[in-house]
Nucleic acid binder design. Structure first.
Length: 430
RNA sequence: GGAGAAGUACCCAAGUGGUGAAGGGGCUCCCCUGCUAAGGGAGUAGGGCUCGAAAGGGUCGCGAGGGUUCAAAUCCCUCCUUCUCCGCCA
């Protein structure tokens, strides 16, 4: 969400930005916003005048009543009453115009960082850098569900019966591996100075509508029947929700948080064969990072955040690359974003395991996350960022494929061994 | 889940329909005193929006949102949170 003052002063820049994102159908909204904004302010000014008059007269009535001048008071009452219709109309106009402005401001995209590559859609995203050699083993790498089954580590059939498609039972070593990765991720981030959080896994509707668009809400969120509660789709929802309508002292920034939560997503829409198994599912678990910081520090944190994920995967011997989101693929709220992708030896390509975003002040403006400066009086909006540390079981796909040996065993990288009871490898069940 | 009570500033707290939302503590500054302690004075209700070149004005704001009224911290409705007691529970 942009600053309305910025739109007033720089309508051309806003339009230019819309074009860069190939959303030309939104161009007209800029002028509409300016028009409704003008109408709003006119109504507002007139309404304020009338309110001032009413306040004045009300006080007068109070004075007259105190002196017992009832008739005079009644006369003034009538004057105020005569203004009632216009006041009511203006109040309605004010609200209506403001809503028209807000509706459009919500979908006018945030100004993208100058460094964002221009492109129409995800096919034009740009590979930035590779970390680790993408290996091609000289044996066949099976489908990840088959690898898991070779360890007697997954039961999808049972999950379909109890919960339907998109759920899973993990068991034995695979389940333990799953938990180990999360525990390791937690300690990894704590080691980098982040504060560990376990947030609420359900949030109220007002928080939900604050942190996402209506369309997202429909396509992602599970609602609890008979309660004003939704299952979170990511801990970012509760973590950012925590800051809604807060004024934060400047010296409390940056807040560098890492949160664990299960994530629940409806994943409405059809998905291809490579998204079967445990790739795209209704329930997974995630270690996340969230940063709330001063505006001038957000580019620095953005680089640190994705670097954390890269480093994490590298300690588990998984080759990764960073892929920058081009302008057209960048979500409207974001200034800049990149995916961290892990190498799949089976598919011989990289696939998404994490996503790092700098939202600038757009999310903070929308949610009222403000900062009180140490010097000076003017409050300002914080910058917010978020990134995935790791999200199994999808991550297990990369882990198993990259650590699979020719004999069907899976080696456990040194960093993870303490969480796996010291085991150096997992051996397939007969 | 049930019953009761409460929510006003950084903290405590007065205020049950009427002209600027008391008072105290704390904090900041000044004076007096002069190593400390004590005393006196001033300031301290945030934030949004809006009009204005500016100075400054207006509006909204007493947990949130509605309503009644010329006028609401105050009356009514819904919700949230906290406390006390009861019930249930890993």
């Amino acid at each position: 969400m942009l600053d309305i003052k910025f739109v007033r002063q720089n309508p051309d820049a806003v339009k230019e930005n819309i074009k860069k994102k190939f959303q030309d159908d939104k161009l007209a909204m800029v002028d509409e916003v300016l028009d409704f904004d003008q109408k709003y302010r006119t109504a507002r000014t007139r309404a304020d005048e009338l309110r001032a008059m009413r306040n004045q007269k009300s006080k007068l009535i109070g004075g007259l009543m105190a002196k017992g001048q009832k008739d005079e008071a009644e006369a003034v009452k009538a004057e105020v009453k005569a203004m009632a219709d216009e006041m009511e109309q203006l109040a309605e106009d004010e609200k209506a115009y403001q809503e028209e402005v807000r509706k459009r401001m919500m979908v006018i995209p945030n100004i993208i960082d100058p460094s964002v590559p221009i492109g129409k859609d995800d096919s034009e995203n740009v590979e930035l850098e590779r970390f680790g050699e993408p290996v091609t083993p000289d044996f066949e790498v099976p489908y990840h569900v088959d690898i898991m089954e070779s360890f007697d580590g997954i039961d999808l059939d049972a999950a379909r019966r109890t919960s339907g498609n998109g759920f899973y039972y993990l068991k034995g070593d695979i389940a333990r591996l799953h938990s180990s990765i999360l525990s390791y991720a937690r300690d990894f981030m704590i080691g980098r100075g982040f504060t560990y959080y376990i947030p609420p896994f359900m949030i109220r509707s007002d928080v939900v509508s604050g942190v996402m668009s209506f369309a997202e809400m429909e396509n992602m969120m599970y609602k609890i029947e008979g309660e004003d509660l939704y299952l979170i789709g990511t801990s970012e929802h509760s973590m950012i929700g925590k800051f809604i309508d807060t004024i934060n002292e400047e010296e409390t920034l940056p807040q560098t948080l890492t949160s664990y939560s299960p994530c629940f997503r409806k994943e409405v829409g059809a998905h291809g064969i490579e998204e079967r198994g445990v790739y795209r599912i209704h329930q997974f678990e995630k270690q996340e990072m969230v940063v709330v910081c001063k505006p001038e520090e957000s580019p620095m944190w953005y680089d640190k955040l994705w670097q954390n994920t890269v480093d994490f995967f590298r300690t588990l011997d998984i080759p990764v690359r960073t892929l920058e989101c081009c302008s057209g693929d960048l979500a409207d709220l974001k200034v800049k974003s990149c995916d961290v992708e892990a190498w799949s030896p089976r598919q011989q390509k990289y696939f998404e395991v994490g996503s790092c975003s700098n939202l600038g002040d757009a999310q903070a403006r929308r949610l009222g996350i403000r900062v009180r400066p140490k010097e000076g009086k003017e409050l300002y909006f914080a910058h917010t960022l978020n990134n995935t540390v790791v999200a199994p079981p999808r991550m297990l796909i990369a882990f198993l494929e990259n650590n699979l040996q020719a004999d069907g065993s899976v080696s456990i990288p040194a960093a993870l061994r303490p969480y796996m009871g010291g085991q150096e490898k997992l051996t397939p069940k007969a």
